[in-house]
Amino acid sequence: MTGTNHMPEPEGQVSDAVKGNWVDHLAPAFTRPYLRLSRADRPIGTWLLLLPCWWGLLLAMVHDGQASWFDLWIFLSCGVGAVLMRGAGCTWNDITDRHIDGSVARTASRPIPSGQVTTKQALAWAVAQCLVAFAILLTYPPMAIALGVLSLGPVAIYPFAKRFTWWPQVFLGIAFNWGALLAWTAHSGELKLPAVLLYIAGMAWTLFYDTIYAHQDKEDDALIGVKSTARLFAEDTPQWLSRFLVATVALMGMAVIAAAPDGNILQMVILLVGPWAMGWHLLWQMRQLKLDDNDRLLMLFRANRDAGLIPVLIFAGALFV
């Protein structure tokens, strides 16, 4: 006995959950395994799925020079949809990885390998989340609905990517940035070049932040044969992150230039502050990087919420110019 008192860990808490999160301390006990499957105790993933949606919506509003009450619905429903689809995607990921997760220190405490829920219960939960998200999607224009349905393909494939490619983060980027295409189309009713450029910029950003994240698991991944860009790049990771940073800023800048109304130079300049300032945040992350410090890696990964919010705030401000 040392005489030091420690608060007991909540039963079933996942090892990499945010400490003191509301799921472990406030949610009814019977809901906790399902909320943990949805990563409600780790909200950063929801932010990373949501932010490209808001980029696409706001840039579409700038491009068209108009806003409506329906845009407010798109803004809010993207938030609800991000929670649901991130939850469904993570649940599906845990189902497909249930045998792998038990062999990795960071994931062994997840609900399926730790026995909190069965595989059938998890599958039912994934379907329920998808159905609610689909109900929201039906309020969008036809082309946006079609894009939303197509997004299920990358979501379904992603968990298997680390088994057959060293670049599973590309598949994550395809899935996680789909909202840039969807939200633009929900506003305008059609897909245009700026949304595609924004989408690819988001993919480069995903390669940046998820490579940082994957370095936490590189030793366990090597033991069980799981591939990742963290293992592929190894000590060359900083050089690759620099390339992804440049690609993110350049492609988002191109999207801004393509979307900005002709003749409004001031508005274009303000919009370009978004990718420029985001780039500085990514550069700060690189300067803080320590590839063998898992606490630092997790902190930097989570910092990408703030990085992605920068263009949201700048694009929103440009609407008033």
Rank of each mutant, 00 (worst) to 15 (best):
Y213L: 04
I224T: 15
E219K: 14
Q169E: 15
G148F: 08
L172P: 01
F160C: 02
S188Y: 03
D220G: 15
A156S: 12
T185C: 12
A180M: 04
L172F: 05
A186C: 01
G179Y: 04
V149T: 11
F208E: 04
Y158M: 05
S188G: 11
P168D: 06
Y158V: 00
I174K: 10
T165Q: 06
A214R: 00
T206R: 02
K227P: 04
S228G: 10
F171C: 14
I157S: 03
L197M: 12
A214P: 01
I200F: 12
F164Y: 09
W166P: 01
L152E: 05
A222M: 07
A175S: 15
G202W: 02
Y213P: 00
P159R: 03
L172G: 07
V155H: 04
W184H: 01
T165V: 05
L182D: 04
T206F: 02
L223K: 15
W167A: 14
T165F: 00
A204Q: 06
S228N: 10
S151I: 07
W205G: 09
G179H: 10
K227H: 13
F171M: 13
F176H: 08
Y213N: 00
P168Q: 08
E190S: 15
H215T: 00
I157N: 01
L223C: 13
E219I: 15
F171P: 09
F176E: 08
L197R: 05
A175Q: 13
W178N: 06
L172A: 04
W178H: 06
H187I: 02
T211C: 05
L197D: 04
A183S: 14
A230W: 00
G148Y: 06
P154F: 00
G202V: 03
D210P: 04
Y209L: 05
L198Q: 03
A180D: 01
F160T: 12
T211I: 00
K192G: 09
L197N: 02
A180Y: 03
H187Y: 03
K227T: 00
P159K: 02
Y199R: 06
L150E: 09
P168T: 04
A180T: 03
L223N: 14
A230S: 09
P159Y: 08
P154M: 05
L191C: 13
A230G: 10
R163E: 06
V155D: 07
L193H: 11
G225I: 00
L197K: 05
